[in-house]
Write a protein that binds this DNA or RNA. Structure first.
Lengths: 211, 211
DNA sequence: GTCTATATCGGGATAGAC
DNA sequence: GTCTATCCCGATATAGAC
C-alpha cells in the first residue's frame, strides 16, 4: 500500500491548485501569497521552496491554465472540415470546456490587458499559429462570397469570439442586470450551448436562399 | 486676464486625469500612487491632500468614468422608439462613445470581476434601472414572437452586449491574432460602426419574410 | 520537507515646516 | 497649497533550526 489516496495530493499540487484559484479570481496584482498558502493549508515559505517567487508561480499557473483549455478548444480548427461544421463545433467545444473552468476567460484577458508584457509572448506563441488555419479558411470563404454581408474575416472571427467568450467575462454585469444567482447563470450557459452553435452559423454564413 | 489657459488645469484636475489614466490601465490593485503623482507632475502627498486615500481617489475615478459614458449610451433606451430602431441606435451610440474612451469597458469589467464589492452597488444603482425599460421592451417583443429563434430576452441582450463590448476588451487578443497595430484597430472599430447596427438588428429580430 | 523568525522593501498615509 | 521627512504596515523573500 503506497498511500495513493485521491485527496492526498502532494504539497506541490496543493499549492498549485490554490494558486490557480487565487490568481484566477484576483489577478496577479491582487493575489497574495499568504492567501494562497492559507488556501493550500501550508506554510507560506513552502511557496518559495517549491516555486521560488510569485512571478514563477504565476507563470506556471498561467501557462498550465492556458494549455489545459486551449488544445481541447482549438484542436478541431486544424481539421479538414467544412467551415460551417467547424464553426458549429468550435462554439460547442468552447462553451463545454469553459463551462468547467468559467474563470479562465476573464483571467486571461485581465492579464493581457493589465500586464501584457508578462504573458503576451507565450499567448502569441501558443494561440496564434493554432488559429491561423481557421483564419485562412474564413478568408477563403470570404473571397468566395460565402460570408453574410460580405464581412471581412477579422470581423467574422471577432463576432464569433464575442458571442462565445463575453458572457463569461460579463457574468457580474449579467447577474446585476437580470438579478440571477450562480446556479441561474449555469442554466443560462446551458441554454447557450443549445442554440448558439446553429445561431452563430446562421449569423455568419449565407444561407442557401441567399445564393 | 484671469489666467484661463487650457493647459493650465488645476492641481486637482491634473491629479484626476492622471489617476484616471493609471487606474484604467493598471486597475486598482496594479495602480501606484507614485505613478499617478509622477504623471500629474506633482508631489505624492498632494494626492492625499486632495483625495485623502487611494480608495477615495479610485472611487471618484470610477464613478466619473461611468457617469460620463453611461448617460450618452443609455439615454435612448428610455425613449419611446420601436425596438428595431432602438437597437440600431444603441449599437451606434455605444461604439461612438467608447471609441473615444476605449479603455472603459475593460476597466469596468476588470474591477467588477476582481473586486466586486467595491463597485457593484454603484453599478447596480446607476445601470440597472436605466436598462430596465429596454429589457422590458425586449421581453414584450419576445412574448409577441418577434425575436429570431424565439430566444429569451436575457439571451438577446447578452448577444447584443457581446458584439458591442467584447472587441474593446479583447483588443490585445485581436492584435495578436491579426497582427495589427493601434491605428489598424481604430479602422477596425470604424468598420464595425458601419455594418454592426444593421447586422445586430438582422440577427435579433425576425425579418418580414419570417412572418 | 517543513517550520519559525527575520530581513528587506515598497507603498499608502501622516506630520510638520514653509 | 506644496514640500520633505518619516511612519508603519503588509508583502515578498530568505536564513536557519529541526
Amino acid at each position: 500500500m503506497t498511500e495513493i489516496e485521491p485527496e492526498e495530493s502532494s504539497t506541490e499540487e496543493k499549492i498549485f491548485e490554490a494558486a490557480k484559484d487565487v490568481f484566477h479570481r484576483k489577478g496577479f496584482d491582487g493575489a497574495r501569497m499568504q492567501e494562497i498558502a492559507d488556501k493550500a493549508k501550508i506554510n507560506k515559505s513552502m511557496l518559495h521552496y517549491y516555486y521560488r517567487s510569485k512571478d514563477k508561480l504565476f507563470e506556471k499557473v498561467y501557462q498550465l491554465s492556458l494549455m489545459r483549455a486551449l488544445p481541447q478548444i482549438v484542436s478541431l480548427l486544424n481539421k479538414d472540415l467544412p467551415l460551417e461544421e467547424k464553426i458549429r463545433e468550435f462554439v460547442r467545444e468552447y462553451l463545454s470546456v469553459i463551462k468547467k473552468n468559467p474563470e479562465i476567460p476573464s483571467f486571461i484577458i485581465r492579464e493581457l490587458n493589465t500586464n501584457p508584457s508578462r504573458i503576451q509572448e507565450f499567448f502569441r506563441a501558443q494561440v496564434a499559429k493554432r488559429v491561423q488555419p481557421f483564419i485562412d479558411q474564413v478568408s477563403e470563404a470570404s473571397e468566395a462570397g460565402k460570408i453574410k454581408d460580405d464581412l471581412p474575416p477579422e470581423q467574422v472571427i471577432i463576432n464569433i469570439m464575442s458571442l462565445v467568450i463575453f458572457p463569461f467575462i460579463g457574468k457580474p454585469i449579467l447577474q446585476i442586470l437580470f438579478n440571477i444567482d450562480d446556479s441561474a447563470f449555469d442554466d443560462f450557459v446551458d441554454q447557450r450551448l443549445e442554440y448558439l452553435p446553429d445561431f452563430v452559423v446562421e449569423m455568419t454564413l449565407k444561407s442557401d436562399s441567399d445564393l
